[in-house]
């Protein structure tokens, strides 16, 4: 078990690294997802052997403003659905994907929902229940409700 083993590769070597891991005894794709770091997105994949005891993490970084990376679907067909999900949730374009339809969302309008900068519409539409002040005590400290980022609000810093 080498669960902490994470190999960072250049974007250009992403598919090649996955091919080498596959041919080197790690043929199963366990996970492919993205972590939003702000300016960059970490694309993360984890591959394992048949027993599941040996695994390797692969990681690369793409720019957040135009995230683009080669699809792993040709190397690992199992990557196809993961990449469709990452594409709709994080707005990453997978070059050479055989079937780039959205997987879970209906339509692709609007900002990718799992990106940190995307306002969660329901948080802005609904009144925060914590705003009710039945004890007529105003908290001195202005606080944002949980799940609301300052840049979503009018006049908020981006």
């Amino acid at each position: 078990m080498i669960a902490d083993d994470m190999l960072e590769v250049a974007v250009a070597e992403w598919a090649e690294a996955a091919r080498e891991a596959r041919d080197g005894g790690l043929p199963f794709l366990e996970l492919l997802t993205v972590v939003d770091r702000g300016d960059e997105l970490d694309v993360v994949a984890r591959m394992s052997d048949a027993s599941g005891r040996l695994s390797l993490g692969l990681m690369t970084r793409v720019a957040a403003d135009a995230p683009r990376i080669e699809s792993l679907a040709a190397v690992l067909p199992a990557a196809s659905w993961h990449e469709r999900e990452v594409a709709e949730m994080f707005g990453v374009v997978f070059d050479g994907h055989p079937d780039p339809r959205p997987l879970l969302l209906r339509g692709t309008a609007g900002a990718p929902p799992l990106r940190r900068g995307t306002p969660l519409a329901v948080r802005l539409e609904r009144a925060w229940p914590g705003e009710v002040e039945p004890a007529s005590r105003r908290r001195s400290r202005q606080q944002l409700p949980p799940g609301v980022r300052p840049e979503w609000l009018p006049g908020g810093s981006a």
Partner: peptide, 10 residues
């Protein structure tokens, strides 16, 4: 109101 204000899912 502490529970109401701290609840992440409102």
């Amino acid at each position: 109101l502490i529970c109401v204000q701290e609840c992440p899912t409102w």
